[in-house]
């Protein structure tokens, strides 16, 4: 199975869709295909029914949170300064992330091939978090998309029954996001250290019970 081949197959059959191959540096070599949300449903149906091999089995659906990450790297560029070409070191700010991603792992049952990794990205992490649901194509995505909605806050348009799966319905936040803050549900931590210790101390500071603070060390 060649990802390039599948990409050109999709491009030939789904007009107007934009695809991008996301390389994967790890030894697993599972590169993935970034699909634009507008055409995702058509791409999905094509992969299930028309492509060769047919990817009729959607195994895994999951979300990934990529918060905004700014990195500054020093880059050497050639510039003309006072008419003379010089190599100048410049700090280049690059920002990556600031989107939520949903990942589908597809397999072909007939030809026993896979995984084909599809990805979709939201516009940002706060407002534009809508993506099309692929449950109409692969029913196996039903619970898993609900889980992604629950834990990451991606809203799947076209999902037949989009409710929280694991958390209760009154719950408001999305626990799998990287910036999620745990509630202060401290009870008793005799062996606390690192993060837990900090939280324990914060809890005691908030509660102002000096008798227990000794216990928290």
């Amino acid at each position: 199975m060649n990802l390039e081949e599948i990409k050109s197959q999709i491009e030939a059959n789904v007009p107007g869709c934009s695809l991008e191959i996301i390389p994967n540096a790890s030894p697993s070599g599972q590169h993935s295909l970034l699909v634009d949300p507008e055409h995702a449903l058509t791409v999905g149906s094509f992969l299930r029914d028309g492509a060769s091999p047919r990817f009729d089995y959607c195994s895994n659906v999951t979300g990934v949170d990529w918060p905004l990450k700014e990195t500054t790297a020093k880059q050497k560029t050639k510039k003309i300064v006072d008419g003379v070409e010089k190599e100048v070191e410049e700090a280049v700010k690059t920002s990556t992330g600031d989107y939520l991603e949903v990942v589908y792992h597809l397999f072909s049952l007939e030809d026993r091939q896979g995984p084909l990794v599809l990805r979709m990205r939201t516009g940002d992490r706060a407002e534009r978090v809508h993506l099309p649901s692929l449950t109409p194509v692969w029913r196996s995505a039903e619970f898993q998309e609900r889980e992604v909605y629950d834990l990451f806050g991606i809203v799947f348009d076209g999902h037949p029954d989009l409710r929280r799966l694991l958390m209760w319905e009154e719950f408001t936040d999305h626990p799998m996001r990287k910036d999620y803050v745990d509630p202060d549900d401290y009870e008793y931590e005799p062996t606390a250290h690192d993060e837990v210790l900090k939280r324990t101390q914060a809890h005691y500071a908030a509660q102002e019970t000096p008798s227990g603070a000794e216990e928290a060390r």
Binding site: A25, S26, Q30, S59
Partner: peptide
């Protein structure tokens, strides 16, 4: 491990 991703089943 180096940066990257993998799905094992």
């Amino acid at each position: 491990p180096k940066a990257g991703e993998a799905y094992g089943r």
